[in-house]
Amino acid sequence: MQPFYWQSQYGNFGDDLNLWLWDHLLPGFRDVHPDVLLVGVGTVLDRALLPSGIRKLVVGSGFGYGTLPDMSDGDEWDVRCVRGPLTAQAAGLPLERGIVDPAVMVADMPEFRNIEKKHRKSFVPHWESAVAGLWPAICETVGLNYIDPRGEAGEVIREIAASEMVVAESMHGAILADAFRIPWVAVTTSRSINSFKWRDWASTLGVSYHPRQVPVSSRAEAIIKGARFWGVDFRENVPARSEVRRSDLGDIAVLDREPRQTTLRTAAKHALAAPSTLALWQASRATPQMSGDALLTERKERFAAELERVRRDYL
């Protein structure tokens, strides 16, 4: 059995954690049933993404992009649970099959326990924002620790766990913060952020998704997201999430993970990002939220029970 996940060419920790999470949740799964695909963390219940003609075991995946595949064929689909009730409803499943995002189980892994707090507040952008935005410099300006979602998944998660509060544009930034019992504030920079998947997860834990609006920070970011930037509209010809390339950004440089030497041009870019800076500063001072301990525990117990049934049937 092999895990399936959506792979960003830039990296995205919320998807990449599938590479090792299932070895913890279902030890030995790789050694059995080579004809079965394990479909786990991510918004991957999309007809265009999942291969046909192979049996798929769905454990906690979500819908939110493209067209939902027909999962009625029991020979090809074994749907144990999905991310939340919105996915369950869309798929014609009983609402109780929408349990929770499997990423909440990461907090129980030994390597992520008892991590020392070293950041008062951190910001985890969406991966598209990280590709083309000025967010590292903006975070430095407003006193936030910047967490790049394109980093190695384990290290990103440790940085989240080491924070006392998280501002999250990345949904899995919020999911992991909540799992580690860290208060969080949701933000969004454009209409390209998928609210369906956020609400799908949030409804399982009794929290809400009412993100604070933060303007895009650069022209390159506006191009990727189909947003407006200083009166220029880039809302046409937005590339699909699987098709974002450096060539889509024209002659605007994609930020490297290490800041470059300040120049007149970069200073001008930072000046243009002033609305983004102010909005992110305000978000970092907003009242955060977090799910209740009892509800999170109940959802994790239900998910663990599904895992036990999978072990019994497959391992």
Rank of each mutant, 00 (worst) to 15 (best):
Phe4Glu: 09
Trp6Cys: 04
Asn12His: 10
Leu25Ile: 10
Leu26Pro: 06
Pro27Arg: 11
Val36Ser: 05
Leu38Arg: 01
Gly42Leu: 08
Leu50Pro: 02
Ser52Ile: 03
Ile54Val: 15
Gly60Lys: 07
Phe63His: 11
Phe63Ser: 08
Tyr65Pro: 00
Pro69Lys: 11
Asp70Val: 04
Gly74Asp: 10
Cys81Leu: 11
Arg83Tyr: 05
Leu86Thr: 07
Thr87Val: 10
Leu93Ala: 05
Pro94Lys: 10
Glu96Gln: 15
Gly98Tyr: 06
Ile99His: 08
Met105Ala: 15
Met105Arg: 14
Asn114Gln: 13
Ser122Leu: 03
Val124Cys: 02
Pro125Val: 01
Pro125Cys: 02
His126Lys: 12
Leu134Val: 02
Ala137Glu: 15
Cys139His: 09
Gly143Trp: 05
Tyr146Asn: 09
Asp148Thr: 05
Ala153Phe: 01
Ala153Gln: 01
Ile160Asp: 04
Ala162Met: 05
Val187Cys: 04
Asn194Gly: 03
Trp198Lys: 01
Trp201Val: 04
Thr204Glu: 03
Ser208Lys: 10
Gln213Asp: 09
Gln213Phe: 05
Pro215Ser: 09
Ala220Arg: 14
Gly231Tyr: 07
Arg235Gln: 14
Val238Asp: 08
Arg241Ala: 07
Arg241Tyr: 12
Ile252Val: 14
Ile252Leu: 12
Asp256Tyr: 01
Arg257Ile: 02
Glu258Pro: 00
Thr266Ala: 01
Ala268Ser: 12
Lys269Ala: 15
His270Trp: 03
Ala273Gly: 08
Ala274Gly: 01
Thr287Met: 11
Ser291Gly: 13
Leu296Lys: 14
Arg302Gly: 01
